[in-house]
């Protein structure tokens, strides 16, 4: 057993390692918080921050999440909530891709936006936020526009990709790139009181079916905009799917589209 492992074993209480001990271990042994996190989980111990994940997720699954890489395209309405939830869940490597900066009209719904962040690069704010809430996981900010040309490089090594973009062109290109790279894609889209989610595995044509009648423009979000709660609903459903994809658990929302209407509080499942 290494000195770090001994330290962790000696400081475990009910198989939990406190944040204080995790930080102390990093300083004392000259390693990163991420390395300490991996060492803790490998010893079948649990960083205390994840104790409310327990029963639902085993320590082995927590380690699996920590060793996973998820790429999130878009750091706006959906993306802000998705990044926050992935970091709190304990996904070890998160890549946040967006080329945009925060504007005043983002403040009604985008979790990462604030008056102080107006004009700032969204993915840089995302990296700061994730360092603040869970410094043991890493967020790689990529200020770039996603398209078919750049896509492959941007998504390299991802175990799962999340669609949090705001236009159909990018969604269809993202689906095409994920299919080529054989990566699972969790799609979500919103407009006003309405939204939908679907999980697309390589070879599925779900995205092409969802946007089969698309003529090139924006959806009804163009008139409706988006309030504070709709992105949070879709984003949470998406992160639930990401968690299942990474752990190979449960029944995925595959070959079906979950459509929600918060105005009439209806949920429909559409076969894809």
């Amino acid at each position: 057993m290494t000195a770090l492992q001994t330290f962790l074993s000696e400081n475990a209480a009910d198989e939990l390692i406190s944040w204080q001990h995790q930080q102390q271990a990093a300083t004392q042994f000259g390693v990163s918080l991420a390395e300490v996190e991996e060492a803790i989980l490998t010893l079948q111990l649990l960083p205390a921050r994840y104790q409310r994940n327990q029963q639902m997720l085993s320590t082995t699954q927590q380690l699996q999440l920590f060793r996973s890489k998820v790429a999130v395209i878009g750091a706006g309405g959906l993306g802000g909530y998705i990044l926050e939830q992935l970091a709190r869940l304990g996904v070890g490597q998160i890549v946040s891709i967006d080329d945009d900066i925060f504007e005043e009209n983002n403040l009604n719904r985008q979790l990462l936006s604030s008056p102080a962040n107006l004009g700032r690069v969204k993915v840089e704010v995302a990296a700061e936020r994730i360092r603040e809430i869970n410094p043991a996981v890493s967020l790689t900010p990529v200020q770039a526009w996603f398209d078919k040309q750049s896509g492959g490089e941007l998504l390299a090594g991802a175990d799962c990709v999340v669609d949090a973009v705001d236009n159909v062109t990018a969604r269809l290109e993202l689906a095409e790139v994920c299919c080529q790279l054989k990566m699972p894609l969790v799609h979500g889209a919103i407009a006003g009181w309405y939204g939908h989610v679907a999980t697309v595995l390589p070879g599925d044509d779900s995205m092409q079916t969802i946007y089969r009648h698309w003529q090139g423009g924006k959806g009804v979000e163009q008139q409706l905009g988006n309030p504070s709660f709709t992105p949070a609903v879709a984003a949470s459903l998406q992160v639930g799917e990401v968690c299942k994809v990474l752990l190979g658990q449960g029944r995925l929302l595959r070959n079906r589209q979950l459509v929600f209407n918060l105005l009439d509080m209806e949920v429909d499942e559409i076969p894809l």
Binding site: G74, G76, G77, L78, G79, D163, A164, V165, D166, N167, V168, R171, G188, A189, I190, A191, Y194, G195, H196, T209, Y211, R212, H213, W214, K218, G219, V220, E221, N226, P231, V259, I270, P271
Partner: peptide, 28 residues
């Protein structure tokens, strides 16, 4: 969709069928 199957605009309807129409949603 007609009777839970995806269809195109030129699909001819038959007696008793159910046509479902959803708007395009693409925001994020």
């Amino acid at each position: 969709m007609i009777n839970h199957r995806h269809v195109d605009l030129d699909r001819v309807l038959s007696e008793g069928e159910t046509l479902a129409i959803f708007p395009l949603v693409g925001g994020g």
